[in-house]
Design a binder for these strands. Structure first.
Length: 166
DNA sequence: GCCAACGTTGGC
DNA sequence: GCCAACGTTGGC
């Protein structure tokens, strides 16, 4: 199992929006960056765990943990002319080159972990999200980083464990 | 295949 | 809301 971080602007789609979705599950659509797409398409596996990160808010922070419940499939929003993610040029034979995954909210962090906290914490120096100018919206997270952040977020020994028993 | 222009991201 | 950093586009 692998760990990931995905960014979202809560004004557009927040952790609460995910929790309120049917079965706490939503399609993570609208990713329009090849590096991010490739992570989702090639490396996201069923049951992988994902930190949900709120950007463009004060403070930017990791707020919850989601789980991959469906692996990559074509991003339907690219085909929808009314969607802001519509991308006609990405369509070939009726299928977009962009993909989405379905994720399910599994645990809100009791204490959200802010970007400034991430930057201050020993062991997280290599995280992409802490780097200025880094805008990749889907990023891998190392197991050691996952464990540290779960602990900071108040989830104890959650890392890699059973989501049913945090 | 270069690179200037452009649009977007995201911390501040 | 600003704007630096970044990724993409398209003319050449």
């Amino acid at each position: 199992m692998s760990f990931w971080l995905m960014k979202t602007e809560p004004d557009v789609f927040s952790w609460s929006d995910l929790e309120r979705s049917p079965n706490s599950t939503a399609s993570w659509d609208g990713v329009r960056n090849y590096q991010a797409r490739n992570f989702m398409r090639d490396e996201f596996k069923l049951n992988d765990l994902v930190f949900i990160y709120h950007s463009r808010v004060e403070p930017p922070a990791i707020v919850g943990i989601a789980q991959v419940v469906r692996e990559a499939y074509p991003d339907l929003s690219a085909l929808d002319p009314n969607s802001k993610y519509s991308d006609e040029k990405s369509i070939r034979d009726g299928v977009s080159r962009w993909v989405m995954v379905d994720v399910k909210a599994v645990a809100r962090l009791p204490k959200e972990v802010s970007l400034s906290q991430l930057r201050e914490t020993v062991g997280l120096e290599q995280m992409l999200v802490t780097r200025p100018g880094q805008r990749l919206s889907v990023q891998p997270v190392r197991p050691s980083e996952w464990a540290i952040i779960c602990h900071m977020g108040g989830l104890g020994e959650y890392p890699g464990g059973n989501p049913a028993h945090p």
